[in-house]
Nucleic acid binder design. Structure first.
Lengths: 141, 141
DNA sequence: CCCATTGTTTAGAATAATTCTAATTCCTAC
DNA sequence: GTAGGAATTAGAATTATTCTAAACAATGGG
């Protein structure tokens, strides 16, 4: 657990490293995603952020999320037609959507499997992103 | 190319085989998806269906699509936050979303790759569905 | 230091895909 | 034929997200 000041330092540094202005709003949004790594929706993030910064608006949360996604600090996860979720795990990984609880679990993808996946593309196809997701009954993981 | 009557027969039969009432609306919706296998959205399907059955309503198209999806005659394909697309290819396959044209291509997934995918799940996880999709620059396929 | 420019935040309105509602119509089985 | 359940319809409602326009903040050049 870091002190608030250390926390702030770290967040600030991460944002600067990505060439985005480290505004307080962006820091708080990033913070809540890193703090509770449970794939929250924009609404959930909004609620958590408001606890620390009551004046923030939902539009700003969306703006910040867009920025964080496009600079690669968080990932976007979509399931079917459900609201977009946000994920701080930057390693290549898949998602498992538990049908019973609605929870999302990260699943590690070994490098060789990833390579196999890219290899199934016919020649001429250049994938800039691969999405892999499962749905079903999750284990006790 | 089949005659309209043969067409009707075939569609009718497919619906009955799935234990759903073979209504004219369901037949036409299924028909347009099978006829032009280009992953249309509900709106596009609505437009095509209206050409043959001008009185149909959008709600009915959604109802029919739901029915066809849940009885397994068509598959639903979701990309990011874009409108849901519908796919008549019932074989296990992945999708490639061409960023330039917006077109969706079916990609065959060899059985062993699929097996490998399911194998990356930790014990206790039971996947009822696997989704694999790519985004990028498509080939001439 | 001051202003201009540009980037950010904000509240609220707007949009777009989808779902819901309630009324009507259509089948199917008795 | 008629009762009862399923399907269709038009339109309203919902929901996540995006847009708009105004206010605000930071940065850099003079």
């Amino acid at each position: 657990m870091k002190s608030p000041a250390e926390d702030h330092e770290a967040l600030h540094a991460r944002l600067k490293a990505c060439d985005v202005r480290p505004t307080p709003q962006r820091e708080v949004v990033l913070k809540v995603i890193l703090d509770k790594r449970d794939h929250p929706t924009a609404d959930e993030i909004f609620a958590r952020v408001k606890a620390q910064m009551p004046t923030i608006s939902l539009a700003t949360v969306y703006n910040c999320l867009d920025t964080l996604v496009s600079c690669g600090l968080v990932r976007q996860v979509n399931f079917e037609r459900a609201p977009t979720r946000y994920c701080p795990n930057l390693h290549e990984h898949a998602h498992f959507h538990d049908e019973a609880t609605g929870k999302v679990h990260d699943i590690a993808v070994p490098a060789d499997v990833l390579a196999r996946l890219r290899a199934i593309l016919p020649s001429g196809f250049e994938a800039s992103a691969v999405e892999l997701s499962f749905r079903g009954k999750a284990g006790t993981n």
